[in-house]
Design a binder for these strands. Structure first.
Lengths: 119, 119
DNA sequence: CCAATTGTTCAATAACTTTTGAACTAAGGA
DNA sequence: TCCTTAGTTCAAAAGTTATTGAACAATTGG
């Protein structure tokens, strides 16, 4: 079972910007960037909204090509599509993440440590 | 008579991204960037929509702090707030403009030459 | 098998955004 | 003064996005 993702060349700039222009989704991306290399499941983001609401926002991010979601058991392991985004829009993700990193107004994924994920 | 603009420190990242996440507004910004130094009035953008519609989009850009509008006679001279944006979100505008510059899917401000503007 | 965990889907609603035309203001030129 | 040009404002309509809870599916562990 795999989830639908756009190819790198199908990623659209206005779409990516629109999707990042939501504080909840920007907070998700900032957190993913801060944990790059670590695959996170949806529950890590429950600080930012209800389960249903996160499912919605994570689907938006995935459909826009910002994140990749891999199905591992009952988990969806979520990662930033950094290479694809960097290839398509050089420097964009870095500057967004740097700017978001300083933004006190953005919602925060709580200081709770990451849970070890089971395969 | 002056129009309301946010201060540099009031410019919000999610807001800027959301505002740039509209193809019409992104096309406006791309065109402004391509004519940097030249002050443009609203009529230059009529390729992108009706007068009323442009008034709406240009107000969004201005209220988000992306553009500055100066009243000169009956014209509003529009410029990118490059220095403010670069200070607040280093590299962001450049990467957006570079990415937009290659984007064939974005609407285009026609090849018509700029009209000399009257004070 | 049963229960718990993880996450999705659906339908409803609320809230916002975009687009439109008609009416308007304000400045400039004849 | 009157006309034109530049742009705004308003209200309506249309479309889109975000949020919610209830019901569902799939996997895993006991």
């Amino acid at each position: 079972m795999t989830l639908p993702h756009p190819n790198a060349d199908q990623i659209s700039l206005p779409n990516v910007l629109a999707v990042l222009g939501d504080p909840t989704r920007l907070a998700i991306v900032r957190y993913l960037a801060s944990k790059e290399g670590v695959a996170l499941n949806c529950s890590q983001f429950l600080d930012l909204g209800s389960k249903t609401n996160l499912s919605y926002h994570l689907a938006k991010l995935r459909e826009a090509g910002v994140t990749r979601a891999e199905v591992v058991g009952t988990n969806r392991m979520i990662t930033l599509r950094r290479a694809d985004l960097d290839a398509r829009f050089p420097g964009l993700l870095d500057s967004v993440i740097a700017a978001a990193g300083e933004d006190k107004a953005l919602p925060m994924v709580g200081g709770a440590d990451e849970i070890e994920i089971q395969a």
